[in-house]
Amino acid sequence: MKQRTLTIGLVILFVALAVSAQFGLVDRYIQSVIMLMGVNIILSASLNIINGYMGEFSCGHAAFMCVGAYVSSILSVLLFADNPFLGAPLLPAYLSVVLFPVVALIGGGVAAVSGLLVAIPSFKTRGDYLAIITIAANYIVISAVENLEVIGGPRGFMGMKQVVRAMDSVAKLPWMVIWVALGAWFSVFLIRRFVSSTYGKGAVAINQDEVAAEIMSINTNKIKVAAFMLSSGLAGVAGALFAHQYGYVNAQSFNILKSTECMVMVYLGGMGSLSGSVLSAVLFTLLLEVLRPLQIIKWVIVPLILILLMQFRPEGIMGNRELPDFFPWMRKFYRFK
């Protein structure tokens, strides 16, 4: 029973969230903040695989988010919405509820394949040279999307609100809140499984010493490909959820600043700490929302807070430990590794 407590608690939390969104107990603004939190949790946890566990320095995470967002948006608009370029919906609206997760996962899959753009150079390249490759990949993806006139180019792509409306026509539920919550749960579950598997242990070994890891018969290339593809794939899922949540995507919203945000969340939470990156994603989103009334001053205060945090706690909130390491009573409910 005790091992199931966390799962049951999460289910209750999600149901409570969905019910309160359904009956208007929380307004649209708070819903959107919660959804942003979910997307940020996926982003920071997935980047933590590479920057935390594997110890590489990827600063172009938003590129994969962009790929996932665009692929899934185009697919869902093609299937369920009216669009001047893509024509009338191909499938009846009631299928949208069933097929939306599939569409999001396809977006994630394509993003995972695009992650090879970074994964293959990482066989030979490490450290700051790999960092540059990720930055270049970010610029390349954004620039490519902006030059594709078919999908709106620099004007962005919209129509995903119609898809959400199609879901609403089946049953009047807060669909996006549900999908984002499920997506965040799925991602954290997957990442937890990954890092406690032999793959994850291999990634940690690569972090500590790549040559030694290779001598200990770890197939480093295989692990790198797996880690990069999982990370970028989940970023693609996050992008898909992000796009459908706002109903509009623009390549510039996935620029290097978004990547910086992802990195900040990882290092704020602590490298190689899954619960740390979930916590920091929640805190960071809240911080940004709380400081919203300050407008531009917000973007002075937030970096200052982070600089101060780095001075006084340079390993981030959690270091490379998990929550149960701090609060041993949690081990009864939740075991990591």
Binding site: F57, V264, Y267, M271, V300, V302, P303, L306, I307
Partner: peptide
């Protein structure tokens, strides 16, 4: 890498 993040934040 924490120093790098600090540098990024200083830039912001």
């Amino acid at each position: 890498l924490y120093v790098v993040i600090t540098a990024l934040m200083c830039g912001l």
